[in-house]
């Protein structure tokens, strides 16, 4: 299959059919910030931090680069006034949950996001879903679930499965950009009373 040529930040980039803009950028050393993306997982498109500007058939659109497929002659911009504004607001919204997350604070510095912009929210979880998806897609254990909808959405360990599977795995812990996951695990453990090892 022939290569697809596109432009990212003025640089000509060669990509393969089926690649996403994020893949193409990464393979040619162009940095796009991400939060819910993980190379071992299916693209998710939840955090929208990787939003970029694309110009295709005369129209400018804002798309999640982790999902947008490369196409011939596509023009991509990874930074612009608008993109920076989008990322700044998104980070501010997440800082309302996890004001101490090192990953968020580092991005906040880059985009001028203020952690006190919005009122503090009680849950630390930013719902990136890395834990849920890693457990389902890589470990195939499905010990963590998304439950509920809208602003009520949260992650839950499923005690029936977690009590059997998690004690010697915990591979999802380091994926969590906040301290929420470990807290949720300990809480489930405490409530249901299964052992750590």
């Amino acid at each position: 299959m022939s290569d697809i040529l596109l432009t990212i930040d003025g640089k000509e980039v060669r990509a393969k059919e089926g690649m996403t803009v994020l893949n193409a950028a990464q393979s040619s050393g162009i940095f796009i910030p991400t939060l819910c993306h993980h190379e071992k997982l299916e693209p998710y498109g939840g955090c929208r931090i990787c939003t970029v500007e694309v110009e295709s058939r005369g129209r400018t659109n804002y798309v999640a680069s982790c999902l947008y497929p490369v196409e011939k002659n596509l023009v991509v911009r990874t930074r612009s006034e608008k993109i920076d504004k989008i990322r700044k607001v998104l980070i501010e919204l997440l800082l309302a949950h996890a004001p101490d997350s090192p990953q968020l604070l580092e991005m906040a510095k880059e985009y001028g996001a203020k952690s006190v912009r919005f009122g503090k929210e009680p849950s630390f979880c930013v719902l990136c879903g890395l834990c849920v998806r890693y457990c389902a897609e890589v470990k195939k254990k499905n010990a963590i679930a998304f439950v509920d909808q809208g602003p009520k959405r949260e992650i839950n360990f499923i005690p029936e499965i977690a009590s059997k599977e998690c004690w010697n795995c915990k591979e999802c812990f380091p994926l969590c950009p906040t301290s929420y996951l470990q807290a949720a695990y300990v809480l489930t453990q405490g409530l249901v009373g299964f052992k750590n090892s």
């Binding site: 457990c135 499905n142 679930a145 439950v147 499923i158």
Partner: peptide, 21 residues
Amino acid sequence: LEKVSNKLGVPLSEVLHIATF
């Protein structure tokens, strides 16, 4: 929910997601 999950071969996490959604 557990029974439905087992019978249909759909992970309990997915069944819970749907049931709470």
